[in-house]
């Protein structure tokens, strides 16, 4: 009886403390905007058209400062992603100039991109990127969604979180106020406003629409195999449940010999 009380009290006590403190773990305390992403949950999937629009936003707005060096153009055509057609992927890739070489003369040269090439970066290296952006490095976006607490919700909230700074809040030159950035200061100016992009599929390019689309695209970029992972996971767990039941019944059948021998 005494043990029972002790055990359960500590369990309750621990979890209450945990819940109370857990928001303090890291990052800003401001509650993020929660979006019901299509890729959330056990059966989450990416919305193909949103991914394609998101790529357009990345390409036309973000890619001037943010690299995505871990992605290849062919990823845009692979299953589970925006699933552009092969022709579209070749066309997209060929829009970019890729450095290649050395040729037989020993010189580096430039050629149109191919699907097998990695995404071209706006700057040759981290230092050039920082220097061109007031000393702040615009992070590479390949795994950005996984590199921030709050994931897709954080990215979306940040994009929607620009506001006027409150009374008395000091902002240096070139720094902007953002409700969700740690410390509320961000060097990036508000990147999205209504009509920044004219969507190829005709969707109205409101701020929320673009923010949702580009966040969905970034979520895919960070986790291109999410759909396969979810699909495999459902199958694996169902299989394991079946096998567990079989093993359980076998075990019970075996042990009935021992119990009956008492």
């Amino acid at each position: 009886m005494k043990t029972y009380i002790f055990k359960n009290n500590f369990i309750i006590g621990f979890f209450l403390t945990f819940l109370f403190c857990s928001s303090n773990l890291y990052g800003s305390d401001t509650k993020l905007i929660k979006v019901d992403w299509s890729f959330n949950g056990i059966t989450g999937k990416f919305d193909r058209s949103s991914l394609q629009r998101g790529y357009q936003v990345y390409n036309e707005v973000c890619s001037s400062c943010h690299s995505m060096r871990l992605l290849s153009y062919r990823n845009l055509g692979e299953k589970g992603g925006p699933e552009f057609s092969i022709e579209q992927v070749k066309a997209i890739a060929s829009n970019f100039e890729v450095q290649d070489g050395p040729n037989e003369e020993g010189e580096m040269f430039v050629r149109p991109g191919r699907p097998s090439d990695k995404f071209v970066s706006p700057y040759p290296n981290v230092q050039a990127a920082s220097a061109a952006n007031g000393g702040s490095y615009p992070p590479d976006m390949s795994v950005l969604v996984k590199a921030r607490k709050g994931g897709a919700d954080y990215i979306y909230s940040l994009l929607m979180g620009y506001d006027n700074s409150p009374e008395g809040f000091e902002l240096e030159e070139g720094v902007h106020y953002n409700k969700y950035m740690d410390g509320n200061k961000i060097k990036m100016a508000k990147p999205l406003s209504e009509g920044s992009v004219t969507y190829a599929d005709g969707t109205k390019a409101t701020e929320t629409q673009m923010a949702k689309d580009v966040t969905t695209f970034l979520a895919w970029a960070a986790e291109p195999h999410l759909e396969a992972r979810h699909k495999t996971g459902v199958r694996v767990i169902i299989f394991l449940i079946v096998l567990t039941i079989l093993v359980y019944l076998s075990m019970k059948r075996l042990w009935s010999r021992i119990d009956s021998e008492q």
Partner: peptide, 30 residues
């Protein structure tokens, strides 16, 4: 039947587990 069914399903599970371990050595996407 129960034991046979368990062994069979177990064997399927082992095979399904072995495949990724083998296939990862095949040429990757890049």
């Amino acid at each position: 039947f129960l034991f046979t069914a368990s062994y069979t399903v177990g064997a399927i599970g082992l095979g399904a587990t072995a495949w990724p371990l083998i296939h990862q050595m095949n040429p990757d996407r890049s």
